[in-house]
Design a protein around this nucleic acid. Structure first.
Lengths: 350, 350
DNA sequence: TAGTTTCGTGCAAACGTTTGCACAGCGCGA
DNA sequence: TCGCGCTGTGCAAACGTTTGCACGAAACTA
């Protein structure tokens, strides 16, 4: 029913190859012929069949995007940015959701492999070695995980965690808890490592609780442990958990920030809407989405580029953190701290 | 590089057609042959090329899903449900975002048309006639808009709005505002119509404010107008706006629910996390996602089915609504009201 | 035993494109 | 006049599948 290249060829009195060239290599065809062909195509409502084109060129002009949980507000800005970046280059994005399940991830990559030109793997939960293996089946760009030999886009959460701990320390907190993220999360490990060393440097105690589901419920569930641990401040793996945690703490009769200070990570839109407003580490998610698409498409041109991009984070101080029992350091920098790396400035600028 | 059907045929000593049948019509091939072929395929890591298959069968096994704004928490549950329903039937979902822009919608449908077997159009902003025209180019299922002649899935927001207004009325509110949604939204018109008639029936005044952007900012922006209007209760187009509105009202020195009661619509996860917790009309979004996928795929089999599904809504009373100045009616039913229609019970049960 | 059905397989023509190659026509310099 | 290069077009072979048709063998039926 839909018009094919042959219909257009017949109507405009040229060979199908000329029609083909009108679309995929216009400079090769005479201007007059070209406009005639275009007119016929327009008239017939012709649109090239991408499947057929994919068959011969080997490029589908589709990109897969795998996220752990599309309902986590961290991802939508990343997805939107990736989509619009892709659309500009005449690519489409296939979004899929793994429900935080590592084995679903593997299946999805394999399923997607044949119908996309590459996959953006965001916040993977599977093992490094599996990722490397899969990258042999389909071009992969990994987001939120550092991995040598593969193109990656990561947020500098280590820096973010350090800023957060320093901030808490500066406010006089010496007993701090870290609410970890899900098993398999590189980001969670990174935060832990960095928070540990920052706490040590500041003479503070850091209690790690986890792994946990990175959701409101996950945060709420650890409230009791937090109270029992007797800490005065908490750094949570992400904003969602921080918000759930505040909810849980309130239910336990604790006030935030008077009794316990809470810091999140991500700076999702929601973190400005809860009461108290959340102090958090902002991550440039939209920039990450754009960068990942760019890397994937660049990677398509020349083989085996494995650039690694690190995007800077910054601490945004709002109302969920307050003075602790220890001595305050008024040297706390507060507010915006970091700026973009030079060579990725265009990504980092939101 | 990746193994093709020919490689498998060579390795297992049969013709490619036999290999093809092993996958697409297993009952036609001898059990012994079949297992040998499967073994070879496994061994070579063979996976059928969907583009090639699509070329000949005309079915891509992909479904497009167009939403107004993926960052609106209303959509993710719908998307997830649609994805998992589709995956069960060996389909993939293509999610795209229109940024609430009607003209982007049209482009996207057209762009998707050739590489998917059908499109789920959620909360469209474009005109009915354009939708009908597009439905001639690609099978369409419309979600959140009633439209004769096309398969549709809608939430019974009219019922929801009625319940909400009755609830407010029962609490003694007589001057109520309706914060409308974006231009072009069927849901918004529907809410308005129903809220109007419910208000009239309850001897209440209803002031309509809008159209507005259906976001927190959109809600926050109308706070001042609300105060000026001197109403004691507000029904908002969606939870996001309700939450933004509460934020805005608080900034204006109004207390919720003591000075102003606020009701949202959608019951997004977030509405349980804000303070005060939001009274809202719950819409079965996941059920809608599943239903839409089912309708699309059914529609594919026999031509021109145009079923219309309406999913029931219910009022969830939380903390953002309280007594108004007028006489109370203790006949207010409160809590869960509606149940699923018989024939869509499996969708409505979340 | 002959005829008929069933089963399993192979053959080859599609599906709608892209693209290397060939070729015709033309203009130009020698 | 010849040879050359350039431009625009046609030709046909791919790409990796599916599927209608044909055919041989085996298994029934009469």
């Amino acid at each position: 029913m839909p018009a094919t290249i042959r219909d257009v060829a017949r109507e405009s009195g040229v060979h199908i190859s000329t029609v083909s060239r009108t679309f995929s290599a216009p400079h090769l065809v005479n201007a007059e012929t070209r406009s005639r062909v275009l007119a016929c195509a327009e008239h017939l409502g012709y649109r090239p069949n991408r499947a057929a084109r994919a068959l011969i060129t080997g490029r589908t002009h589709n990109i897969g995007l795998i996220v752990a949980d599309i309902a986590n507000p961290f991802f939508p800005p990343l997805i939107k940015a990736a989509e619009s970046q892709a659309r500009q280059r005449d690519y489409h994005i296939f979004v899929t959701d793994t429900n935080e399940d590592a084995s679903v991830e593997e299946d999805l990559v394999r399923a997607l492999a044949k119908q996309v030109d590459g996959v953006l793997l965001c916040s993977p939960r599977m093992s490094n070695s599996l990722i490397e293996q899969l990258s042999r089946e389909v071009p992969l760009v990994v987001v939120n995980r550092q991995l040598t030999g593969l193109p990656t886009v990561v947020m500098d959460v280590a820096q973010g965690a350090r800023l957060a701990i320093d901030h808490l320390n500066g406010l006089g907190h010496r007993r701090i808890a870290l609410v970890a993220g899900p098993r398999g999360s590189w980001t969670s490990r990174e935060i832990r490592r960095s928070a540990m060393s920052a706490a040590r440097a500041g003479d503070a105690d850091l209690t790690v609780i986890g792994p946990n589901q990175p959701t409101e419920d996950g945060g709420m569930a650890v409230a009791e442990q937090i109270v029992r641990a007797g800490v005065t401040a908490v750094l949570a793996y992400n904003d969602l958990m921080a918000i759930g945690l505040i909810e849980g703490l309130t239910a336990q009769g604790q006030r935030v920030p008077e009794d316990v200070s809470v810091v999140g990570i991500d700076d999702i839109a929601l973190s400005r809407l809860t009461r108290p407003k959340l102090t958090t580490v902002a991550t440039p998610t939209a920039a990450a989405g754009r960068a990942a698409v760019d890397m994937l498409l660049a990677h398509g041109d020349d083989r085996r580029t494995t650039a690694q991009i690190t995007l800077q984070t910054e601490l945004v101080i709002r109302d969920s953190t307050g003075p602790g029992p220890g001595p305050h350091s008024h040297a706390d920098p507060g507010g915006v701290v970091a700026t973009a790396l030079g060579d990725v400035a265009s990504y980092a600028k939101e």
